[in-house]
Computed example of a mutant assay.
Amino acid sequence: RVVRNSFQQEVNKRTLKELLNTQREQLMADVKREVLEAVRGADKPWGMDVVDVRITRVDYADTITRSVYDRMEAERKRVANELRSTGFAEGEKIRAEADRQREIIVAEAYRNAQAVKGQGDAKAAAIYAEAFGRDPAFAQFYRNLDAYKASFGSKSDVMVIDQSSDFFKSMRSAAPGR
């Protein structure tokens, strides 16, 4: 009982970290000193000597153990939530960077496509100019076909045209056998 009481008093003076790391030897020395004082007592010595005292295990009351476990669990949850939020923020940063790079790539691709299209249009215009320069009547006929093609948006469109229009005149003159 004397040893147990001495241990309890000394353990209550220290933190768990101190008990397990820095002040373990000091704790045992203090307990040994208190037990020797009780055993050698001034009034009635017990007739024995205490050579050594050691800690084998430190148990806390169930309520203390439960509260320590709850604190540890809360700390782990806090760390987990912090890591999740950090991961979410990193994910958002990565997604934003990917979106930015995608926009740059799409813009560059559009620019390159427009340049190629412009080169093709220029080449087509040069070919048209050369072809139309050789035969102005064909050029007029081709432009009329394009105009009529553009005027029909769907299959159900209807157009009423005078037969004496320039289009029909060019069609009659281009028809074989006339």
Rank of each mutant, 00 (worst) to 15 (best):
residue 150 A to K: 11
residue 143 R to T: 05
residue 149 K to F: 04
residue 125 A to Q: 15
residue 151 S to L: 15
residue 144 N to M: 11
residue 126 A to F: 03
residue 134 R to H: 15
residue 145 L to R: 15
residue 145 L to N: 04
residue 138 F to E: 03
residue 147 A to T: 11
residue 133 G to M: 06
residue 118 G to R: 01
residue 128 Y to I: 06
residue 134 R to T: 05
residue 143 R to C: 14
residue 160 V to P: 09
residue 115 A to M: 05
residue 159 M to W: 10
residue 150 A to N: 09
residue 128 Y to E: 11
residue 136 P to T: 00
residue 131 A to G: 13
residue 146 D to L: 15
residue 154 S to T: 08
residue 126 A to P: 02
residue 146 D to S: 15
residue 121 D to K: 02
residue 143 R to A: 06
residue 115 A to R: 01
residue 136 P to V: 00
residue 154 S to D: 02
residue 127 I to C: 01
residue 146 D to H: 07
residue 157 D to W: 10
residue 152 F to L: 13
residue 154 S to I: 07
residue 159 M to A: 07
residue 160 V to D: 13
residue 136 P to I: 03
residue 132 F to E: 12
residue 136 P to K: 00
residue 126 A to C: 01
residue 135 D to V: 05
residue 155 K to M: 12
residue 138 F to M: 02
residue 160 V to R: 12
residue 146 D to E: 12
residue 118 G to M: 02
residue 148 Y to V: 11
residue 114 Q to F: 03
residue 145 L to P: 05
residue 159 M to V: 09
residue 114 Q to A: 03
residue 162 D to W: 10
residue 125 A to P: 10
residue 116 V to N: 01
residue 133 G to K: 10
residue 152 F to R: 13
residue 152 F to M: 08
residue 125 A to S: 13
residue 136 P to A: 02
residue 156 S to A: 11
residue 144 N to R: 13
residue 157 D to H: 08
residue 146 D to T: 09
residue 131 A to D: 06
residue 160 V to L: 10
residue 147 A to M: 12
residue 152 F to E: 10
residue 128 Y to H: 05
residue 155 K to D: 14
residue 137 A to M: 02
residue 133 G to W: 15
residue 137 A to G: 10
residue 122 A to L: 04
residue 137 A to H: 03
residue 157 D to M: 12
residue 156 S to E: 13
residue 142 Y to V: 05
residue 114 Q to K: 02
residue 135 D to W: 03
